[in-house]
Design a protein around this nucleic acid. Sequence first.
DNA 1: CATTATCCGTAATTGCCGTTACGGTTTCTG
DNA 2: CAGAAACCGTAACGGCAATTACGGATAATG
Lengths: 199, 199
Amino acid sequence: MRDETREARQAQIESAAYAVLEEKGYSGASMLAIARRAKASNETLYNWYGDKTGLFHALVRRNAAELREMLAAQIAGGGDALAALERLGPALLAVLTGERAVALNRAAAADPTGELGQAIGREGRETIAPLIGQLLEQARAQGALAFDEVDDVREVYLGLLIGDVQIRRVIGRMEAPDAAACAARGKRALALLKRLYAP
Amino acid sequence: MRDETREARQAQIESAAYAVLEEKGYSGASMLAIARRAKASNETLYNWYGDKTGLFHALVRRNAAELREMLAAQIAGGGDALAALERLGPALLAVLTGERAVALNRAAAADPTGELGQAIGREGRETIAPLIGQLLEQARAQGALAFDEVDDVREVYLGLLIGDVQIRRVIGRMEAPDAAACAARGKRALALLKRLYAP
DNA sequence: CATTATCCGTAATTGCCGTTACGGTTTCTG
DNA sequence: CAGAAACCGTAACGGCAATTACGGATAATG
């Protein structure tokens, strides 16, 4: 099979996996259900992804890569560091509380082996946290913020931005916040951060 | 069966349910596995709890009730409102990131119906949030804090206190914080809160 | 155009789950 | 102490999961 059609087929399969996962949860997302939804054979799924864990690993990897790209674009968008953070905050919140990320977090919570959670942490959080740290350090260099430990500040910012929205989403206690809500939370988090770490 | 032995037996069964849940996850926590662990019959489990959902509902209810009692004791411990908050914060964090609460949140994330998540929200968060709101309003009445919207302040405080520790715990990306870590986070959250809402 | 690898659809295998059912035994009750 | 109720252990039932296997169709390759 040509590489391009194969990639397109994989995108279809992974899209079907998300659809089933969002509808039925991790336990209901059987390989056969995903195969049926993608009009693919389960043999193909096993050949390409090894097993169920492998398929969900692929979902995590792709989702994390897309998030990284999006954040990089926001950072490259110009302006000073705090302006970038103002754009980035709502976008990050929207992704983390969106259907796909929530479905993956639920899958990780349901995975008895804990491998999915490790993957989410490794390829998601632990690669985007440094990006935010860099922005904060830029802001300090530009004289917009003043602090000693960038790790603390980043944690405070993320706590203010995300709060308990993500966990409430994961346990099914909340709908996804719309764009306005994300913007409002991003704005508030940044405003509080400025007050806490004013130069 | 006498009520006291029955209650003791229920405590044993629910303890066994936690043990299996923590070891095997929600999908691995079958009724038979729990019955075996508790040296009970599955017929008893079904007679007492109805079905699997009913058993986990009972776990949520009991856990939430214990948390409420603990918080009430902390509040009743005397001192001004901020002193109570200083005691309460680390204790709350310890419970929310402890093995039992984490196991229940994982179960809620894995539950396709979403009922468990609803129960956790209803009997857990939505009954303890007002307690914290009361403390904050007391602090304002005592002149220790100044703010308009208590809901906002409470959300900021909880965000600072808990951050993403809970979600990271639930997806298996973190060990439970020890007492020192909980105390440190509680202290920091309170210090930041005071700076943000100084009179 | 023929061959060859790949993919689809379906079925088979194995195993465990939730739930119900049923003797045998323990424990309460009067 | 006798009868009744509740509990234990085990088994049975239907269902669905993950994974493997296989013939027929399809598309890439030389």
